[in-house]
């Protein structure tokens, strides 16, 4: 098929972008790195009459860290920048881990973290850890600004809570609590450079010897990245033990709703949710113990 004709604007400010987006109407799409959008358009899976490119908007770039407020990642920030940023590496190692694992060098140098979320692929590498870390997204339209939890962001494959006239402007991740830890675990058929067949993000905190703020997020095992809330509940307020980690992981596996596709069978995915959740819990726990004195 022929790539249909479309218009392209590259505004310099957020206001201009919002204006263009609102005026563009139904066929308008936001363009960040384009690593998903352009491929979809080329295959006729997404139609667009107008692309509004946001990479030229200065204010959407950059990573800011404030020990009391946490991390803010602008919508035009590259995944490569997230993966290598010193503050992310130091205070959000699991977030950096997921970013580093996303696609390959060339894609990370084009694609944005916000784009990875807005594309809303069930397998999006950056979603599970951000969900586990309780991330929020800031969303702006001409009508105003709202902030919503990432938990409420994904509606289905390729579908999010964003209204047609809204732009996701930044991703906000709270600072790590004392004695807390997070982890990202994934599995893929090819080893080093591959889309995840299953991925898991975990966060937890130690309050004395009791586990708190347990958050378990699963990728590529449901129509959207999902929280395993029943598994979390099993661990919340309990004391750490390997047996408990096993039990919680088995529960997460039960909660997952995978399908069979070209990358893995549903049965294998379910098994891997259990293995990866346990590993993520172990790593998060170890990091929490390590962070005790921080």
């Amino acid at each position: 098929m022929r790539l249909p004709k479309f218009d392209y604007v590259a505004p310099k400010t957020l206001d201009e972008a919002l204006k263009a987006l609102t005026a563009g109407g139904e066929g308008c799409r936001l363009l960040a790195g384009g690593t998903d959008l352009m491929v979809k358009m080329g295959h006729g899976l997404t139609a667009a009459s107008l692309l509004v490119a946001i990479k030229g908007i200065e204010g959407l770039h950059g990573i800011r860290f404030d020990p009391s407020k946490g991390l803010s990642i602008g919508a035009a920030t590259l995944i490569a920048e997230v993966a290598e940023h010193p503050d992310v590496l130091k205070y959000y190692p699991a977030v950096a881990q997921a970013a580093r694992k996303t696609a390959n060098t060339q894609i990370r140098n084009m694609a944005t973290l916000a784009g990875n979320l807005c594309n809303a692929a069930p397998s999006a590498d950056n979603a599970p850890v951000l969900l586990a870390r309780g991330a929020e997204v800031e969303v702006v339209s001409q009508k105003g600004t709202r902030q919503l939890s990432l938990d409420d962001f994904f509606n289905g494959p390729g579908q999010t809570e964003l209204a047609r006239d809204e732009i996701l402007t930044q991703i906000l991740v709270p600072p790590a609590a004392k004695a807390s830890g997070a982890s990202y675990q994934w599995i893929s058929p090819r080893g080093k450079v591959d889309i995840s067949a299953v991925c898991v993000g975990v966060n937890l905190r130690l309050d004395g010897d009791v586990l708190k703020d347990v958050r378990i997020a699963l990728g590529a095992v449901a129509p959207t990245p999902m929280r395993a809330t029943e598994a979390e509940a099993l661990m919340e307020g309990a004391k750490w033990s390997e047996a408990l980690a096993e039990q919680v992981s088995a529960k997460a596996s039960e909660e997952s709703r995978p399908i069979t596709d070209v990358r893995a069978s549903a049965e294998y995915r379910r098994r891997m949710v259990s293995v990866l959740t346990r590993r993520a819990l172990e790593e998060a726990h170890a990091r929490a113990v390590e962070n005790w004195g921080v």
């Binding site: 058929p189 090819r190 080893g191 080093k192 450079v193 591959d194």
Partner: peptide, 16 residues
């Protein structure tokens, strides 16, 4: 054929 790109056709990369 369902695996028609390098995303799904799993050829090892240099890193592997």
């Amino acid at each position: 054929t369902l695996t028609t790109n390098f995303l799904d056709y799993k050829m090892p990369s240099a890193l592997d």
